[in-house]
Simulated scan of single mutants.
Amino acid sequence: MAQAHVLTGASNDPAAPAIRRIGRADLVRALAQGWDDFSAMPSHALFLCAIYPAIGILLAGLTLGFAIVPLLFPLAAGFALLGPFAALGLYELSRRREAGLTVGAADALDVLHSPSIGAILALGALLMVIFLVWLATANAIYVANFGYAAPASIGRFIDDVLFTRAGWALIVIGNGVGFLFAVVALAISVVSFPLLLDRDGGAAAALATSLRVVRANPAAMALWGLIVAALLFVGSLPFFLGLAVVLPVLGHATWHLYRAAVVPDPNPRPEYRPQPKGPRYAADFPAVLFPWVREDR
């Protein structure tokens, strides 16, 4: 039963969310709204995303330290595949601000109370599998061109990649295959995670809706992918520090992109965060043991 809920959501026959056609103006508007959200709550966004530059620098250090320099670029590029899942807290902050609710850093953790948390984790696991397959594929491409021997030095590795036939093949094939992985990740996640925060439709319905949005808006989704890739590249310079701004803006913008591409649910579900309990007084005992009595008051 739990597995069925993860796949299909609250209903065994959920109605497919209606989608819209969007264009370049909608992408620009989503980015502007994402920046507006970031400007309204920068401390929250930075609190959530400051870890990403640190992770990037740590990955680079580990890569250099363990002599797997050829995987440095695949790690940095593949990390973007996990971005839609990592930005869950940002979607939640934008959702709450849009609804006129109070917003604090701790509210990003409301995703843990979502009825769709099982489906969210399932799609997150799918993205992780894609990320790991990408790393294995990138390593196989390198081995096919340079063999199993580790580079003698970083300078030698850069020289081999930029000025040899094998290096050119690595660049062309690696980027071509990486592009295919990015397309797959974008297609299955462009609106799926915001959708699961917004309604309990299940992982299968969320994934299918994301694919439908991409199929209905191929040009806009291709442009969105290019925008994301360009901003991530700019944000990674220098030393990934710009990601502390780029990631939250893109995360907030993705929520608004979802709002533009998917028609809102006519029967939105109530807030899923447990409401804080009011203060208890000694005079309430033993009535607190019988809550139905208190409900009649």
Rank of each mutant, 00 (worst) to 15 (best):
L48S: 02
F79C: 07
L72M: 13
A77F: 04
I57Q: 13
L88R: 03
A87C: 12
L72S: 08
G56P: 06
A76N: 09
L72G: 10
G56Y: 07
G65T: 11
A87E: 03
G78Q: 02
L82K: 05
L81R: 00
F73I: 14
L48G: 00
A67S: 15
G83Y: 14
P84W: 04
L46I: 15
R96I: 11
I68Y: 12
G78V: 02
G65W: 09
G89A: 11
G78N: 03
F47Y: 11
L93C: 07
L81T: 01
A54I: 15
L46F: 15
V69Q: 12
R96T: 13
G89F: 00
S94W: 03
L72Y: 12
G89T: 03
A67V: 10
G83F: 14
C49M: 14
F47L: 13
G89L: 02
V69S: 12
L82S: 07
L62G: 11
F66K: 14
L58W: 12
P53R: 04
Y52L: 10
L90F: 02
I55K: 03
A77S: 13
P53N: 09
A50Y: 08
A77W: 01
A45S: 14
A87I: 09
A50Q: 12
G89D: 02
I57W: 10
A76F: 12
G89C: 07
E92D: 13
A77K: 01
P70V: 05
P53A: 09
F73R: 04
A54W: 15
I55P: 00
T63D: 07
G65M: 10
A45W: 01
G65F: 08
L82G: 09
A76G: 09
E92P: 02
C49E: 05
P53K: 06
A86G: 08
L71D: 03
A45Y: 01
L59S: 04
P70S: 08
L93M: 11
L93A: 04
A50S: 13
L48A: 08
S94A: 15
A50I: 11
L59Y: 07
A87W: 06
F73S: 07
T63M: 10
A45K: 00
A76M: 15
A50F: 09
A50K: 03
F66A: 14
F66C: 10
G83D: 13
L59H: 03
A87L: 10
G61K: 06
E92T: 05
P53W: 03
I51W: 06
L64H: 11
L90Y: 00
P53V: 04
L48N: 03
L93F: 09
L75F: 15
L58I: 10
F79Q: 06
G83S: 14
E92L: 09
Y52Q: 06
A50P: 01
P70H: 06
A86K: 00
A60Q: 08
A76K: 03
I57Y: 09
P53I: 04
V69M: 11
L90S: 01
R95Q: 13
G83E: 12
A86I: 02
A45G: 15
A80G: 09
R96C: 10
A80D: 04
I55C: 10
